[in-house]
Design a protein around this nucleic acid. Structure first.
Lengths: 379, 379
DNA sequence: GAACTGAATGAATCGTGCC
DNA sequence: CGGCACGATTCATTCAGTT
């Protein structure tokens, strides 16, 4: 099973000091075909890829060759099987490059609709990516089905995948839980479609037909990257990914073919303001806090040797010993975690929340002592 | 684009008179492998297929909740496949048979999760089916992600497809709109997971690990079939499809391998009661209806179709129909508000406070049911 | 009997890091 | 690479048992 790379221990800052020389064209739009341009990027060099590929809507019969170039003059009698086959080849080609340029602990997001998402999903799996979730973007204000022939198409689907089954990946669990009112963030997200002042227009017409809302990218980048991480968007369009990345102080690379989109994206990103450093800080997993050994609490007098601990239901009791180990009334000994496992008969136990001590007339988890210690000793 | 076969023009009744001799094993469970058993069915013979195939979950080791209790996972042999390739071959084989036995104006529904739905979707498209919508079942009460490693997997995906791009299909647009508060039914549906008295148990244990809620099948069958239509379920399990089909006066055929599931399904379907004929009638008028928010209560079982309502003084009576419309004893039909207007001869009527149902031996306004529903489903 | 409390449970691809 | 210590992690609902 894969591993979650939480924002555990402080890593060398990449942005705060002088940015290290990078072989990557950071914070730039590269003009051209996404497959060809990705080929010019080094192996294992980006932390996250967000891709919003053509949906192959089969309305006007928009088609792409395996090299990503557009097929013109499609007629109604174009064979649908050929169309799907061609779209599959195109999808596999750009996803293969995406897999190559992704760091081993990176991840990819792809958005699509029922027209193309199944083909994208199969290609993702076949290339060795490991799907972590499929996410549903529920549109708060979708376009109705005017003819009354189907259900209102009110959502799009995103696939989130790590580089492989055993690969690590970044997931800022605490940030997501905080964002969702202290409940786990679910796989269905509701956002309005992109409109109002956020929607880029030129001469009264929308610049891009499928501009994505910034809120969507905000959640993706907040969940799966850290400040300074490099985000690649091979179908950059009008640069929603770049604008949000800049705002959240992530680095970005965009690939886009069309002049009109590139111009709009450049102006948009130039106008975007990075959030204040302090605003970028997110809720951290406990892992990110300095580690406190249970023995330290004994050593420093926060908990006296000889103190009796028990679980919340007072089924089990144990005594604190001078070295920070516990001894149960039955004679078993071990660390706070180990003894919790033994007594409960479970393979895992968090001793910090399992064991309680008597304070102010009631049982409190010993984790509160750890918090007190941290508050008292941290600057 | 396909054509919608609405229930506009009256067709010869199939059920009211003597049922015509059918080569199909109607209202029966056929024991055996679904591919082999489908081969014995004639070409173009069923109106709808609902399929809940194995998801190929590929679960790893044991999983424990934070409180140390064990999670009862799906470990059945029927969900194990050697590889994705094997799973693809299996999927294409049963879908090919499904395509053959389906009438030209029939349709198919398949449910799955991110583990398998992309592979299913590609097979559906490659076999010539034409996807009409993908539908998201949002679980009101999903199982959390206990390790905090991903987003809560809070939904499953259904694919709805016609037999081909130009094929006709049935879509009861009015029924869906009535059911959804006079708004077009969207592609995201919220239902609780199957539990409580609806969940089949034996010796205190669930009979089937993945029993689907009847509300889900209720909406599918109401949207896409007419009374008397034949519904085939090649992965019948404990017979949710059969039970709902019988309730809605549709014919059904189930294919299932395992004795335990078949026994449970037979008993369950035998106990299911077909709704009153008049309750089955669906709204056919294209006219706009006054706004109601009533269909959900019917769909979720807060108020059974066929229930008689009356006003507070018992001067007027009306029966609840499957799509949330009411039919008076005089034959008038309409939403709860509209029928109140008609019967009283008033220009406006709040159906929520006008209509009452018998509960605890006395009449209570149906608005109390709405309140109950809201209390039960809102955070 | 109503109200409250605690236990049980659901289609789940559910760790990291040191030695 | 394996083995093992450390320690991070849950929401809505139902149902049984108690007050």
């Amino acid at each position: 099973m894969g591993g979650v790379r939480t924002i555990a221990r402080p890593r060398p800052a990449r942005q705060e000091a002088a940015p290290p020389a990078s072989p990557l064209p950071l914070d730039q739009i590269i003009q051209g075909d996404c497959i060809a341009r990705m080929r010019a990027l080094p192996d294992k060099s980006v932390d996250l890829i967000f891709a919003d590929p053509p949906y192959n809507l089969q309305l006007g019969g928009e088609l792409f060759r395996p090299d990503g170039t557009h097929v013109d003059a499609v007629t109604d009698d174009w064979d649908k099987f050929e169309s799907l086959k061609t779209y599959d080849a195109f999808t596999r080609a750009w996803l293969a490059e995406a897999h190559r340029v992704l760091k081993d602990d990176g991840a990819i997001w792809v958005i699509g609709s029922y027209h193309n998402i199944f083909r994208v999903g199969v290609a993702v799996q076949d290339l060795g990516f490991w799907i972590l979730n499929d996410i549903v973007w529920r549109k708060a204000n979708p376009m109705p089905n005017f003819r009354g022939t189907r259900f209102t198409n009110a959502h799009e689907t995103l696939i989130w995948a790590s580089k492989g089954e055993k690969a690590k990946y970044t997931f800022n669990y605490r940030s997501m839980k905080t964002l969702n009112d202290e409940l786990q963030m679910r796989s269905d997200w509701e956002f309005p479609i992109c409109g109002g002042p956020e929607r880029l227009k030129k001469d009264g017409h929308k610049v891009h037909p499928t501009q994505k809302p910034e809120a969507l990218l905000y959640r993706v980048l907040l969940a799966c990257t850290k400040p300074g991480d490099v985000v690649l968007d091979p179908f950059f369009g009008t640069g929603t990914t770049g604008a949000v990345a800049k705002r959240l102080r992530r680095r970005w690379i965009g690939i886009e073919r069309e002049d009109g989109y590139i111009d709009a994206a450049r102006a948009r990103i130039a106008a975007a303001l990075p959030l204040d450093e302090s605003a970028i800080a997110t809720m951290q997993s406990p892992r990110a806090q300095p580690k406190v050994a249970f023995g330290t609490l004994v050593e420093t007098g926060y908990l006296a040797p000889g103190t009796m601990l028990s679980d919340a239901k007072r089924r089990f009791q144990a005594m604190v010993r001078v070295d920070g180990s516990l001894a149960s009334v039955c004679g078993e000994v071990g660390s706070i975690h180990k003894l919790g496992c033994i007594l409960q008969g479970t393979p895992a136990c968090n001793g910090w929340t399992f064991w309680h001590h008597e304070a102010d007339g009631r049982l409190q988890p010993i984790d509160t002592l750890r918090q007190t210690y941290l508050l008292a000793t941290q600057p």
